[in-house]
Write a protein that binds this DNA or RNA. Structure first.
Length: 351
DNA sequence: AATCCGTGGCT
DNA sequence: TAGCCAAGGAT
């Protein structure tokens, strides 16, 4: 017996029925790997199914507009993944006849493809023996090998060990088995060592305190901001603007607004932001409601206001639209806006 | 090397 | 509950 055999044996018995588990189609594997980055399986499944129904091939992605793709990514987060997948699809169709490359360097050079995704796609879709190293496998290996830190030296040891252990006939299964082990048994806290197929090989288990592996690094605590946003009405239409494609929540739509500076009232901040962003003067009518939202590196309390204007736009720095409430379904918005929509729907969008 | 980039679920 | 963590990549 060995770690390889034990893990694969366990995998065959405990195999989870996931939509992207039963395919070796490179496009499907790639799509699932991108969606699964820093995102849990249960969250991905509905997005994966809907995307595949709408975009069944790499060509269909290449032909699509970014705004359409973002609509299908809406709410999934880390939107650069979607933009990069689109870029890659266009590159492959334009320069490689729509054929997804099956060698390390070519695939690795595509936007949004890093070491993990490269190894995952090449091993699962093309049966090549590259070990994929994600957060789960790092933790599993740190425990098996008894390494507390992810230093460069320890990562080299983890990687070379995985190259030694990976099953050359079933590299994709080995990678997925190791990831499942991390997700379903070797939890970050309270690992289920008694049901672990490789506990007899595990130094962390032998130590009696598996949670000591790996060492947790302390995170910076994230700041909290107070933000304001305005629904600027002109007749039965209101104003939305498109965010810069390269930045945070890039290419998504939002109500104008921004951060409240210290010493500023909510109304003062909103008037300033609307003037800066849209160049329109507004009358602020009333506050509609507030929501809390946490991003990865800061959190906000966002206050929403009904406003009125004559509709004149003097210096739009971003792409913008005047739309009616029913048209909002055509546009991709970040999650915080959906919380605002909930408030608005409860109020029937009344001014 | 450290930080930025979303969101949801869990404790 | 406030923080931690998840099938990472780009800068």
């Amino acid at each position: 017996m060995s770690v390889t055999i034990s893990v694969l044996d366990w995998y065959d018995k405990s195999k989870r029925d996931l939509p992207f588990r039963n395919t070796v189609n490179p496009y499907c594997v790639w799509l699932s790997e991108v969606m699964l980055q820093q995102t849990q399986v249960e969250t991905v499944i509905p997005y994966y199914n809907k995307w595949l129904e709408k975009y069944p091939s790499i060509r269909s992605v290449a032909l699509a507009k970014q705004s359409e793709l973002l609509k299908y990514w809406e709410g999934l987060g880390y939107y650069a993944r979607c933009r990069n997948f689109h870029k890659s699809a266009k590159i492959i169709v334009k320069y490689n006849h729509g054929i997804i490359p099956d060698n390390w360097d070519e695939f690795r050079s595509l936007p949004g493809v890093g070491d993990y995704t490269d190894a995952a796609v090449l091993s699962i879709a093309f049966k090549q023996p590259f070990p994929a190293i994600d957060g789960n496998i790092r933790r599993v290996m740190a425990r098996i090998l008894g390494r507390r830190k992810f230093s460069k030296r320890n990562m080299d040891i983890i990687r070379s060990t995985l190259y030694k252990w990976i099953h050359t006939e079933k590299p994709g299964d080995f990678n997925q088995a190791m990831m499942d082990l991390g997700a379903c048994v070797c939890f970050p806290t309270n690992p289920d060592c008694m049901n672990c197929p490789v506990n007899r090989y595990c130094k962390a288990f032998a130590s009696g305190n598996p949670m000591n592996y790996p060492l947790k690094k302390q995170h910076k605590k994230i700041p909290h901001h107070t933000n304001v946003a305005g629904i600027i009405w002109c007749g039965n239409q209101f104003f939305i603007q498109k965010r810069d494609p390269s930045g945070m929540l890039g290419g998504l739509w939002e109500f104008p607004g921004g951060k409240v500076e210290s010493g500023e009232s909510l109304v003062e901040a909103l008037k300033r932001e609307i003037e800066e962003e849209c160049g329109i003067g507004t009358n602020i009518i009333k506050q509609v409601g507030s929501i809390n939202h946490a991003y990865s590196h800061f959190s906000i309390t966002l206050h929403l206001f009904h406003c009125k204007t004559n509709g004149q736009v003097l210096k739009p720095e971003r792409k913008h639209q005047w739309i009616t409430p029913s048209e909002i379904k055509q546009y991709a918005f970040p999650k915080a806006n959906h919380k605002l929509f909930t408030i608005l729907n409860n109020n029937d969008w009344c001014i």
